[in-house]
Simulated scan of single mutants.
Amino acid sequence: MSEPMSAAPQASAMKPVDHPSIRSGRIGVLLMNLGTPEGTSYRPMRAYLKEFLSDRRVIEEPRWKWWPILNLIVLTTRPGRKGKDYASIWNNERDEGPLKTITRSQTEKLAARLAPELGDRVVFDWAMRYGLPDVKSRLAALLAQGCDRILLVPLYPQYAAPTSATACDQAFRALMTMRWQPSVRVAPPYFEDPAHIKALADSMRGSLAKLDFDPEVILCSFHGMPKEYLLKGDPYYCQCVKTWRLLGEELGFSAERFRLTFQSRFGPDEWLQPYTDETVKALASSGTKSMAIVAPGFSADCLETLEELDGENREIFLHNGGEKFAYLPCLNDTPEGIDTIESVVRRELMGWL
């Protein structure tokens, strides 16, 4: 007769393993913006542009078509030209682009404002979709500090696949490599958030009050995108229009004085219209003597606002008959700017705190 099968091992035979290095119980808040090159010379500019323009969320052309254009033409000619543009706005003291300087400051000021109430339960950090600090390393840093819940905050008021979505894509790619994934929330776009509209209006009132003239026309300029993306279902255009309408109503401006335009087009395809630069030229040529531009689609000033709007479009206006021009700064790390981010963060942390 065979021996009876031995009993299964007792569960208690498996002793728990203590991992003192694994921390948990805290909440992380990661502010994410587009990115900036590490320098203005050819090599760092090329590296930045290659990462940015290789993103299939940004350029949706077929790879077989876009690869030779990018590598044989764009990355040969564009780094030098864009490097000069970046050099004109570069933060020489910190040796970095202004977007990095401002995003860091936004994070620090938000943390300082909320620290008396939240203590060390919430950890604030920031990252760039392209360039440094990268999203993966900052998520790892939050996990190392015991954050098992993380709120991702794309700093784009209006949602777009080439901005909000690709920032989240990068975070999700990092999460796919983690054994212990944190619980994650993504803050939605805040294009119509009353706190954001009020912050924009208050900021504009303050900037306009500092001018020595009253602009005849104010352009509300948003970053453009190919019209094809709108036709494919991207909500960006509609959200820009909503921001423009709500902001105009808050300020009491007529549609004739407060006009919607789109900037920064790239390549031969049709983009969202009307174009900012063409509108500026037409206004100056038709007799408008004073104007201002504001960019409520950007949470922080960057190349597209400081060099393109305040530089290129200023020249277009003045060279075509205009006399007085002003660029009204983004919310940046001003109290109004931190008000907006705080409103979004507080709302999205409900239930976790």
Rank of each mutant, 00 (worst) to 15 (best):
T305M: 11
L331W: 05
V186N: 11
D214H: 10
L72T: 02
S264D: 01
H319P: 03
T163K: 03
V17W: 14
Q263C: 07
G337A: 03
A111M: 07
P329R: 15
G35D: 09
C168M: 12
D212T: 13
R149G: 06
F213T: 01
Q170H: 13
T163H: 04
Y237V: 03
N92E: 12
M32S: 03
N92M: 08
G322N: 01
R23G: 05
G267C: 04
D134L: 05
C220G: 00
T279K: 13
C168T: 06
E308P: 05
N332E: 14
E308V: 07
T76N: 12
G119R: 10
G248K: 14
T36G: 06
A160C: 13
R81I: 13
S343R: 09
R63C: 05
K281F: 00
P133W: 08
R43L: 02
I89Q: 02
H196E: 08
E315T: 14
K324M: 13
S41V: 12
H319E: 10
S285T: 13
K227A: 14
E38G: 02
L231H: 15
Y190N: 06
H319S: 15
N92V: 04
L110Y: 02
V74L: 15
A187N: 04
E3Q: 14
G97F: 05
P154C: 09
L231F: 15
K324E: 15
